[in-house]
Amino acid sequence: MAQRVLIVDDALFMRNLLRDIFTSAGWEVVGEAADGIEALQKYKDAHPDLVTMDIVMPERSGIEALQDILAFDPQAVVIMCSALGQESMVLEAIQHGARDFIAKPFQQEQVFEVVARVCG
């Protein structure tokens, strides 16, 4: 059975890029969310194996959404998607329970190295 991923990013371009990367590797993308509130909702609906979480988003930020999801499911596997200059936020996210992070701009291999580690 294919592994299932929820993609959270406010930029359509990034969502599309990640969708391509995951589907090409045989993953099932069970949902996409454009903000933190939507992220928790979709997580509750789909119970994915993995969440990719953008950090800076409208409404609730990625870190807040991370905490919401972990509060709902402490076993949730969330990896953060960070951009340059967001190190302090990444550190905070990891402190709060994010399993790992991928730094933008990213390549397929990098994404899957991280995904393999957290889902392996």
């Binding site: 960070s82 190190e87 990891i94 402190q95 790992d100 992070f101 730094a103």
Partner: peptide, 13 residues
Amino acid sequence: VASPAARLLVIAK
């Protein structure tokens, strides 16, 4: 490596 501190934190955890 981007964000080395964050990387080390992940590894340490």
